[in-house]
Every structure is written in structure tokens, then in C-alpha cells.
Computed example of a mutant assay.
Amino acid sequence: MTEPDQSIGRKILSFFIKDEDPNAAPATGSPAGPATNAAPRPAPGTQAPPGPATSAGPSKATGTATVPPGTIDTKFAEHFANVLAKNNPPGPDYFEFRETLRGLNAIGLPEDKQFQAAWASFKALGGPTDVSTLTNTANQYLAALNKDREGFSKSVEAALSERVGGLQNEEKRLQTENEALAKQILEIQQRINANTDRLRAISGEIDEQSAKINQNQQNYEATFAHFTDQIKNDIARMAQYLK
């Protein structure tokens, strides 16, 4: 945007957003009338985020929000003012009328008188005498803002698809991985339980087999002693009786 365009943008911004006390709460809700909405400012000691990149089309729908949801945001207010400045045709039109109307805001006239006085002043300053000029140009500015909103909505969808979609894919992947790990843990636990049961059974079997083996060994020794004792006795008797 050229310097003259920036100047127009700042001027247009002042028609819709007026400066407020830095310590005041940010304005919320829909506009209530000409130049009555205040732009929210960052708290003292903080830095406001940069405004939308108006030279590259509608502002991106990404970034860290610094104002509550549903609040008039300074960076977007500046962005809209610049959009309108780009679409400001030569010569007096709706915005010059609004500037005149804004100047009458503090006088205290009823709203209808303000509009009538602004219209008279607008014509006296060389503006068109046909009211349709005001409504037509105002509708052109609405069309420009709506076009910008369409672009912004597309950037929102793209941001959701890229960032939220990516996070959702990661979420699904991690859930699937956790389910697989949980299944493995269950299988491992089942194997541990089976091994524990087998260990208990083995302990009993060891005692049983040890007792059987010890009994067999004792029976073997007793039987061995029985046979050997008989043979030894026979040898002794043969030596005694067979001479």
C-alpha cells in the first residue's frame, strides 16, 4: 500500500474505531453507532501483535490471540480500514459523509438531526446531491469487506485442515499405538500370570519328585544291604563250615 493509501486507511479507521483510554476494558459486541466503538489495546508493558498482511490479501487465520473471543481486535480493525482504503474511489462519497457525521457526534443532536446536518454539510462541501451516491458507495465497501471475509474464511479452513487436521491424525495414530501397546501389555501380563502359576506348580512338583527320589534311594540302599548282608553271611558260614 502506498503512503497516501495508508493515510486514507488511518482516516477510515478513525471513522469506525476511536481511541480509548489504555486502562479501559476492550469494547465488545456489535457496533452501536458511528464512532462509538473503542478498539481494544494491549495492557501496559505488552506488545500488540502485528496487523494482517493486507498487501497479500485477507489476513491469515492463524497466530496467537491476545484479546478475548468476540472482541473487536485492533489488528483486524486496521486491516478492514486498509481494505476499505484500497476500494475508496476518487471524490466525496460515503466516507466523507461519515467523517462529517462523526464531527457532529459530540454536539448532542438527535440521530435524525445529525444525519440531516451531515448531509447538508456534505453537499455544501461539493459532495453529490443524490443520496444514492452514499448508499451505492457504502454497499461497494460492504462488498469489499464481504470479499475479504470470504478469503479469511478460506484461510480459516486451510488452518483448521493443516493444524487441527494434523493434530487429529496424530491423535488417531497415538490412540492406535496405545491400543496396540495395551494389547501387548495384556498379553505379557497373561504370560506372566501363566508363568507364575507354573512356578507354583513346579515348586510342588520339585518337592514331590525330591521325596520320591529320596525314597527310592533309601529303598535301594535297604535292598542293597539286604542282598549284600546275605551274601556276606553265606561267605562267612562257608568259611566256617566248609573246611
Rank of each mutant, 00 (worst) to 15 (best):
I17D: 08
N216L: 01
A24D: 14
T66V: 05
L145G: 08
S132W: 06
A194G: 01
A24W: 08
T176M: 12
Y241F: 05
T2S: 13
S59D: 06
P90T: 13
A77H: 04
L186F: 07
E99D: 11
D148H: 06
N178F: 07
F227W: 03
L134G: 05
L134V: 03
G70K: 06
F76E: 15
R102E: 02
A81Y: 04
Q218H: 03
K86S: 15
I12E: 05
L160M: 07
N88F: 07
A239H: 03
F80K: 14
N219I: 00
A182D: 13
G204F: 00
P89W: 01
E99W: 08
D130P: 08
A239R: 02
G204S: 01
L142H: 02
N23E: 06
A236V: 11
E111W: 04
F122D: 11
P40N: 08
N88I: 06
A138K: 07
A201L: 04
D130T: 12
E179T: 14
L84V: 11
I107L: 15
H226E: 14
D234L: 13
G127C: 11
F76R: 12
R10Q: 14
S155M: 02
T66S: 05
K172N: 15
A158L: 11
K86P: 07
L13P: 01
G51E: 14
I17G: 02
A38E: 14
T100S: 02
A24P: 07
G165K: 03
F224G: 01
E111N: 08
E162S: 12
N169E: 14
T100V: 03
T36N: 07
K154V: 09
T135H: 02
I8Y: 08
Q6L: 15
D234Y: 09
Q209K: 01
F76W: 12
K11I: 05
P89F: 01
S161G: 13
P42N: 11
